[in-house]
Write a protein that binds this DNA or RNA. Structure first.
Lengths: 191, 191, 191, 191
DNA sequence: ATTTAATCGAGACGGTACGTCATGTCTTCGG
DNA sequence: CCGAAGACATGACGTACCGTCTCGATTAAAT
């Protein structure tokens, strides 16, 4: 979408511009694989002035995070099937699967790369991952209440084993994140 | 160490220069915490020309990794006490402890940050982490041979749970990496 | 041996680059008439990095001034024919003619434009114009010694009438700077 | 003067806004001396929207010129004492004196600086200075009719010597613009 | 009395140029 | 040939103004 087709909204923030930027960012993230996700590039891709980006996001990474979360996240509620094993397997499987999406994966990797040198973005990602951890912990807490886990089980540790394995493999890529692995991991943790 | 105090060795490679560079890199990695581990900065810190760095290392990251591994690692052999639980606990505890060292921690974190945007370095770190994984897997394999693990145990997954938790907590810092956690983790995995 | 006494060992300044920049600047000044004498444009035109320009000149205008003076000025000595009238006419005529040169004129105008918003450059131009004034005053002083001007003649004022008329007409362009005008002006001042 | 204290006049042009803008512009012109006479700055200073400025003036420079001329100039008629020498001296002295005014001088200098990069404003200033030249020429023409100047005197050149000296010294500041200088200049031109 | 039309403050927007920073290569000179 | 110093091309960065646009309010003139 070019700038010429996009009407100005005057002194109000233009939502079309917002999504044009996020779209452009996603296109670059998904496409370029490893390179050239420049602020200038995003601006050009979206038909937007650089200043407009800096006006609304503190850093390039914030744009990327926004681009990823804005659409992908409709705040899926954690499953509650009554069985801890099933719930855990569901969450882990879903997590693994979501990151495999051919458009999401490169974007996510770029995002992490950006976060590494951008404290602003790092903090934003902390919030994001914190929410994920909290959701998973809730699932575990329900299971513990039902007696499916010992009372002294270290829920934080279990959560971190899940996300630890996920990120470790996702970023290093030395081993797969298949559905099979997900189920085996879940079983190992609460079996 | 300034350049003026260091004698030239003529056409042979000067070992003093090598360590001056690695020292300088370490000082920057440990000190600046968040900022500016530039090639120029390393060169200045070491009293060295930039070209000298590029002559011997393929990228900035390679220098950093070299700086970290050159000294800290005298290739500790994996423990072999005869008990899988004890061995695993020992490895995990040692891993957690090593990263806590007040000089190592910030350097390691910076290293990861650099690796995120430097494919050269990323590959080097893969080798490094690969070696660690292999060592741990060897411990587990010995235990499985002794019957301390079922024959169909997914050793790779267990290894990745250890290092996954480690890196996840180390980088995000949302939860501790104490000896207690290490032991609980080990017990959970092979108990 | 202190740092100041230490001979330079670094790479030498590349004279070709210097002249490439000045040439490029001149080409832009002469060509584009009024527009787009950007630092980026100069750099592109000269096949040079922007940083290289900023390394050697404090501002864009300084480059332009350098470009103009570097070549045009072989420090012409003021004429000394023995007759004040003839000398003055010669200087004024030469000044008028020099600025009419089809390549110099637009460059000079751009230079003034730049100086208006660049104190650095303004000072440089002061030096330049100061030297011109001094040269003319020397001519007048010689004439006064020979009795061709009264002892109480205000030489500064005469000089400023010459250069005042010159710049006033050159910049506003409301009246010509012909040889005829030059001679009439000279005659009016010392006739 | 802030916007809140200023009543709206509805669909009629608000004269208070006009003067608020001109006042703000003058304050910036006189005050900052060297910096930042931005359109945004004028708008902020006057408590006015940018569009309001662009609605009534074609360019920033036009505002500045308006600000200067609107108040200072009540179109003083050229003197006509019957003596050319006296009239000329009066005009020159008045011109020199006017520009010395502590509030006018910096504003005038800034105005010229702006004009250097604003063709719109440059043209407006041409009109302004043209009027001044015409006024002075009228004085000279009257004197020539009375026989106080030779029939072939180049009036334009005399005029430009006056204003040339004035602007040259005013802008460069290398020599004063005192009453004494004014009288000597006038005497030299028509004496 | 109601509509219509213009002013005005505010500020988002697409651009252009700025001056700085880091990278990795290349060049010079002294040991 | 090594090593220190640093020039150089490249390209991204984040900022400053520009001039245009649209909003929502206010008020005067036209209906």
């Amino acid at each position: 979408m070019s700038a010429t087709e996009r009407p100005h909204t005057g002194r109000k923030r233009n939502e079309l511009v917002r999504s044009a930027i996020l779209d452009g960012a996603l296109r670059l993230l998904a496409g370029a694989e490893g390179g050239a996700v420049t602020v200038d590039a995003i601006a050009r891709e979206a038909g937007v002035g650089k200043q407009t980006i800096y006006r609304w996001w503190p850093s390039k990474g914030a744009v990327l995070l926004d681009a990823l979360t804005d659409r992908a996240e409709e705040s899926v509620p954690p499953p509650d099937s009554g069985s801890l094993g099933a719930d855990l397997a569901a969450v882990v499987t879903a997590t693994f699967a979501a990151a495999q999406h051919p458009q999401t994966a490169p974007a996510l990797r770029t995002l992490v790369r950006e976060a590494a040198n951008d404290p602003q973005l790092a903090e934003l990602m902390q919030e994001f991952t914190g929410a994920r951890r909290a959701a998973l912990q809730q699932v575990l807490a329900r299971g513990r209440e039902r007696g499916e886990l010992p009372d002294d089980a270290d829920l934080d540790l279990i959560v971190d084993q899940v996300y630890g394995v996920f990120w470790y493999r996702f970023l290093l890529g030395h081993a797969p994140l298949t559905r099979d692995v997900a189920e085996r991991l879940a079983r190992g943790l609460v079996g």
